[in-house]
Simulated assay, not measured.
Amino acid sequence: MIRINNSLVGAVERKTLAWLVRRVPASIGPDHLTAFGIFGAAVTLLGYALTAFSPAFLWLASLGLVFHWFGDSLDGSLARFRKIERPKFGYFLDQTIDVIGNLLICIGMGLSAYVRMDVALLALAGYHALSIYALVKACVSGEFNVSLAGWGPTEMRLLIILMNTTIFFFGAPEFAVFGVALTWCDITIILMAIGFFTLFVSLLASYASELAREERPGRKEPDMGRGAAPQP
């Protein structure tokens, strides 16, 4: 399967990963890094939950996101660098483990003092809708898009870290919108979720139309034997 990453920070990320894989101790393997990524997501959840006591724990939540990136992004790169790839196992494990990591992070956001749980889970649903699109398209086309419209997991982590930093320095007071208590973080994440679902519908319609044209009933396949010598 061809792996395509055209994310906004993809070029910088690839250089960083290429530098890191050469410095990972021989005793650490890709599976260790995958587990470390889940550990990072758990640290993020803990950090967010502890913001009920102090906003300083937002830094712990952001550190967890860095750990999550390190494990999630480096495991496959390390396997390819050491030429120990297990394409089926690696693909299966990576995509299923991502569900757990994303869930831990979003539940953590919902447990924080700044984001409603229903808002955090709405964003998770939209993000997973795009993930499902990418996975289904990979089965059909043989191309796995790590990013969609220039956005991938790394960009999302950076955006969340930026949100955490902004909350720490400027706060996130509640205000009423149609009688519902929200923060600016809630509004931002709701808009993000709307963007996820809008992009999902747009990509789905576009690719479905492309496939429908390719497999239009009654369409004749190109004559691959044109110009060849007639068979007896």
Rank of each mutant, 00 (worst) to 15 (best):
S62I: 03
V66M: 13
G101S: 12
L65R: 03
R80N: 03
A79K: 10
V99C: 01
Y91V: 02
T16C: 06
Y91K: 02
D94I: 09
L50M: 15
A61M: 04
H68S: 11
G40V: 01
G90D: 08
A41K: 00
L50F: 13
L111Q: 13
T34G: 13
R82E: 04
A125G: 13
L121Q: 08
G126F: 06
L93S: 12
L104M: 14
S73R: 13
A18G: 03
T34N: 11
I100R: 00
T51R: 09
A61F: 04
V21W: 11
L17C: 04
L58N: 07
L58H: 02
P87M: 08
L45E: 02
G37V: 02
G110D: 08
T44E: 03
Y48I: 01
P25S: 05
A56P: 00
L122T: 11
L60C: 07
G71M: 04
D75T: 02
V99L: 12
L78V: 09
T16M: 13
S77T: 14
A125W: 06
L33M: 08
I107V: 15
D94Y: 09
A56N: 12
D75P: 11
P87R: 06
I84S: 14
L17Q: 14
T34P: 01
L121S: 07
D31C: 00
L78Y: 10
D98K: 01
W59F: 15
W59N: 06
V24K: 06
G29E: 12
I84A: 13
A56K: 09
S77Q: 15
F57W: 15
N102R: 06
L33R: 08
A61C: 07
I97K: 07
Y127D: 02
L33H: 08
W59K: 04
F89Y: 15
T51F: 01
L104C: 05
L58G: 06
H68Y: 13
N102T: 08
I28V: 14
A49W: 10
G126Q: 01
A49M: 10
Y91D: 11
L60N: 05
G71E: 04
L103V: 13
Y127M: 09
V66E: 05
L104P: 04
I97F: 13
R116D: 12
V99Q: 07
I107M: 14
P25I: 06
A35D: 00
L124E: 07
A56T: 11
L74Y: 09
A79Y: 09
G108M: 08
L78K: 05
D31G: 00
R86K: 15
